[in-house]
């Protein structure tokens, strides 16, 4: 922990409260939640369903806003940004990898990877070059002209990772990236993510239920235990103060 504190902070969630209305009931997902992730960390968020792992990922990625509290990424508070600015910020800073890869079925692997580059100032030739490079990094250059339906699950996920890294974001958020894959393919994907973390310095936050997947991470956060410990610390702090 001390080692992490010495590093620069990439992601900081401060006093996050998140609740939503389900019918007439108010469901509290996070209550005064705090988390800090250093630059270059590979964090695995684990824990039982319903604890708010994906919600945390959405908050970090600016896909959702907290009810209260602050989300600070690279010293920039993002929960106060307008929708338009948040979109631009996402395009520049975050890469997403989802369990269902959500590739556009009408575009080839190359087309899918090129997609985020439409938001950059790159010209057509440069976009193609960047996309080819990203595909080469994930070992999919030979499948560049293939449509998603012509690829296996693992290959689709590789293309999704290529799409996530093509605009060179600082942070990659993965929501159960190996959830739909067999063991061997899952290991390949996790090795790829580890490479991106170790050799390209990407900060990776991965939500997973897979214990094996967590072995690839530099830090594993068991959310249930983390929340419990945090509350105990807060209580202790209150008692000391009083």
């Amino acid at each position: 922990m001390q080692n992490n504190n010495q590093k620069k902070v990439a992601i900081e969630l401060i006093n996050i409260n998140k609740s939503y209305q389900k019918g007439s009931n108010k469901v509290v997902v996070h209550d005064n939640f705090n988390l800090s992730i250093a630059k270059g960390e590979f964090v695995a968020l684990m824990g039982p369903s319903g604890l708010g792992k994906s919600t945390l990922l959405n908050l970090i990625g600016g896909l959702d806003l907290p009810t209260s509290g602050s989300v600070i990424i690279d010293n920039q508070r993002i929960d106060t940004l307008s929708e338009g600015k948040l979109s631009t910020w996402r395009a520049e800073n975050i890469g997403f990898v989802f369990q269902s890869h959500h590739l556009l079925p009408v575009l080839t692997a190359q087309g899918n990877v090129e997609l985020p580059l439409l938001l950059t100032a790159l010209n057509s030739k440069q976009r193609k070059q960047h996309a080819s490079l990203a595909l080469r990094l994930v070992g999919m250059e030979e499948r560049a002209k293939h449509l998603p339906k012509e690829l296996s699950g693992g290959q689709e996920q590789r293309v999704a990772i290529a799409r996530a890294i093509v605009s060179d974001p600082k942070i990659i958020l993965c929501d159960e990236p190996t959830g739909n894959l067999d063991r061997k393919t899952a290991d390949e994907i996790l090795t790829l993510l580890t490479t991106l973390n170790k050799y390209f310095g990407k900060t990776i936050v991965m939500v997973t239920h897979d214990l094996r997947a967590s072995e690839y991470a530099s830090r594993v956060i068991n959310l249930e235990k983390y929340i419990h410990d945090s509350k105990q610390n807060q209580l202790s702090a209150v008692e000391v103060n009083s």
């Binding site: 896909l63 929708e83 979109s87 631009t88 996402r90 395009a91 520049e92 997403f96 439409l118 938001l119």
Partner: peptide, 8 residues
Amino acid sequence: MMKALGFS
């Protein structure tokens, strides 16, 4: 997904 990628 496109919105998540940053498309407005």
